[in-house]
Amino acid sequence: MAPLLDIGALGVDLATAGGSRRIVDDLSLRVGQRESVGIVGESGSGKTILIRAVLGLLDPPLAVAGGSIAFDGRELVGLDERRFREIRGRDIALTTPEPRKHLNPLLTVGRQIANVIRAHRDVAHAAAAEEAIGLLRAVGIPDPERRMAAYPHELSGGMCQRVIIAMALAHRTRLLLVDEPTAGLDVTISRQILDLMHQLAESHGTALVLVSRDLGVVAHYCRRVAVMYAGRIVEDASVAAFFERPVHPYSRQLLRAAVAARDGAARERRSSALLPPAETGCAFRLRCPVAVAECAATAPPLAPLAGAAGHAARCLRAAAIAAGEIAA
């Protein structure tokens, strides 16, 4: 079956005074129908830019500089704003961190949901409002009729996140992009929100791309995981394979840090974690414990691992690491 989303060799440039800088580079990612893929990486790794590129929301100084994004067989790169508008919210929807900041503060949430409904379907205000009540109920907001008239500032962060989810699911969305769903929420609330999203996505048959810094969240809700570093995907694997045997040295560091955080152990402190990505060769080599001279010379491609279907890594020493010959 053809993938729902097929990103191939995507590049995003940031125009600066002295030329342009590559922010996202050679990024390829496939998301199947109904699949759930997690994207992890530290902040600044380009996760959110990737999401915006998929939605066609990059404005100068940012711009797609090559590669393709195919959604359901249709090329999105270069699509004009009017066509893109038809896709946004209807076929591909987005949820954001800090939900309250993403709601119009001067409009009732009911009205905002109704506006999203009416953006893609020619229904009357009253009908849209009726539908919005149903959506609010579906995302677990108690007393939805009354909440329709609430302004964002009158709702808690968790409630606002539910309103955003209601908007994201107002249409038969095929792909839901979930950006940092747990940022700024309590642990218990974020669990509820994630459960809700997951369950609604399942029941709607919606594919999920879940962007998070939290490996635990990805492990729990996704079937595949892609690790981003410095605008590139450095490892792409099934969740099972990834947690069993991560290959890329960066993935291994991430995983160790997550385990340490869970066990309450002292955070692994390395001064190398502050180093910026390398400009040439492998971007991670300055922080990499197993880097060799060759890593500075060639930028490795994202290559499939021998003998492990669906597992790829962007590391010259991947085979050796996978075979257990060296410990990264």
Binding site: L14, T16, I23, G44, T48, P61, P97, D179, E180, A183
Partner: peptide, 10 residues
């Protein structure tokens, strides 16, 4: 969006 505030050269 959290890391949309890019570190533009300042």
């Amino acid at each position: 969006m959290a890391d949309l505030t890019l570190d533009l050269p300042r």
